[in-house]
């Protein structure tokens, strides 16, 4: 069988897994929506959640698509399509592919034509990330039980603890933005983008509160994110990044 990283069978395999994941999402969505109605959440609120999340997702999804395009140059389309639609992320898959290729003593500069190299890469990608799927069922009850204990003991501290978790995550990403400033003005671009996004979000907040534009709440995050991305595309050529 002549190997081709873009063969029909590989597309069919990838599509099967992706359809399965969509089915899982639909299943949990319908369940949550029904349960939401039962416990008295306004269906309008749930619909708002769907619309605003869908809009927010478009830009990050396009950026994931860019990752698929990058990887497809070496691995054909089906494998990157599968990996980045399900559990993976470009930051995982590219090092996994590179690490495996170097085990064969080759570099990833053109499309893989040896089926053994290809299948080894597929194995490393799969084995590299699958434990996440085992940790969740293994630990989820313990983690939630621990949280419940803390909350029952001291409700206020429980809330502060959750907020601290979020802020820890946000801080790590805000800090990362400062990583490149030593390379000169171009290294400041991510900081300018961050500040611009924060500014747009702040303006949205004022409009929502002071001008009573409640509807804007749904769109505030996508607006500030897309606005800042456009801002990045405008200032980068000016600064010369």
């Amino acid at each position: 069988m002549k190997f081709n990283p873009n063969s029909t069978i590989l597309f069919v395999l990838a599509a099967a897994v992706i359809v399965f994941v969509i089915a899982q999402s639909v299943f949990f969505m319908v369940r949550a929506y029904r349960h939401g109605k039962e416990i008295g959440i306004d269906p309008a609120q749930m619909k708002k959640t769907i619309v605003s999340t869908a809009i927010f997702t478009v830009a990050p999804a396009l950026s994931i698509l860019l990752g698929v395009i990058t990887l497809s140059k070496f691995l054909g389309l089906p494998l990157p399509w599968l990996r980045l639609s399900v559990i993976g992320a470009i930051t995982y898959e590219l090092p996994a592919a590179t690490s495996t290729a170097s085990a064969f003593g080759i570099s990833l500069s053109e499309t893989v034509s040896d089926p053994k190299v290809y299948s080894a890469i597929a194995w490393v990608m799969t084995l590299g990330i699958f434990p996440g799927l085992i940790w969740v069922p293994l630990f989820i009850k313990k983690i939630q039980g621990g949280l419940m204990k803390i909350k029952n003991k001291d409700g206020k501290w429980g809330d502060i603890l959750m907020t601290s978790l979020f802020l820890g995550m946000i801080s790590a990403f805000l800090g990362m933005v400062f990583a490149d400033i030593r390379i000169g003005l171009a290294g400041w671009i991510p900081i300018f983008v961050l500040l611009f996004s924060a500014l747009v979000m702040g303006i949205c907040g004022i409009l929502i509160k002071k001008c009573n534009m409640k509807w804007l709440e749904t769109y505030a995050l996508p607006i500030s994110m897309l606005g800042a991305m456009i801002f990045a595309a405008v200032i980068t050529p000016l600064i010369g990044g």
Binding site: S63, I170, M176, I189, L194, F196, M201, M225, G227, M229
Partner: peptide, 15 residues
């Protein structure tokens, strides 16, 4: 550049 800066664009607003 727009996609290169997607994380600061996202986390600025969220922050």
């Amino acid at each position: 550049p727009a996609f290169d800066n997607i994380l600061p664009a996202l986390f600025g607003g969220l922050a």
